[in-house]
Amino acid sequence: MGLTGQASDSGSRVLVLAAGLVGAAGVALSAAAAHRGGAFTGTAANFLLMHAAVFLAIGLAGGNRCLRIAGLALLAGLLLFCGDLLARDFLGSRLFPMSAPIGGTLLIAGWVAIAVSALRRSRP
Rank of each mutant, 00 (worst) to 15 (best):
N64A: 06
A52C: 07
G103M: 07
N46Y: 10
L74P: 06
L106C: 03
G38Y: 07
F47I: 15
A34W: 09
A24G: 10
G5A: 05
G63N: 01
A100F: 04
H51N: 03
L106I: 05
F47T: 12
M1E: 03
A52I: 02
A25R: 04
L106T: 03
R120P: 10
F40M: 14
A34V: 10
H51E: 03
I58M: 05
Q6I: 12
G59N: 03
A19M: 08
G23V: 00
C82I: 05
T43G: 01
F90E: 14
T43E: 09
R121C: 06
L56E: 06
A32W: 08
L56H: 05
G103E: 06
A18Y: 00
F90R: 13
S99H: 04
A57P: 10
L60T: 05
T41R: 03
A45V: 06
G20I: 01
S99V: 02
A57M: 09
A87H: 06
S30E: 06
I114G: 06
V14K: 08
S99K: 04
A32N: 15
V116Y: 15
A32R: 14
I102D: 01
L95M: 11
R88V: 11
H35C: 09
A25M: 09
S12E: 07
P101M: 10
F55W: 00
G110W: 05
S30F: 01
L15I: 00
A28F: 06
D9G: 10
G2R: 11
H35S: 13
G92R: 02
G62E: 07
T41E: 02
G42L: 09
G71T: 03
I102K: 00
L3F: 11
V22T: 08
L86Y: 02
F81G: 07
D84R: 00
L78M: 13
A61L: 11
F96M: 13
V14N: 07
A87P: 01
L21D: 04
R123A: 15
G38P: 05
A109F: 13
A31S: 08
L17Y: 13
A118V: 08
G20F: 05
F55V: 03
G38I: 12
L85Q: 07
R36N: 15
R68T: 08
M50C: 13
A57F: 06
R123K: 13
S12Y: 06
G2W: 11
T43F: 04
S10Q: 15
W111P: 05
A7L: 13
I108T: 15
I58A: 07
S122N: 14
H35L: 12
I108A: 14
I102N: 00
L80W: 11
L91Q: 12
S99P: 02
S99T: 04
A32S: 14
I69L: 08
R65L: 12
R68M: 10
V112A: 15
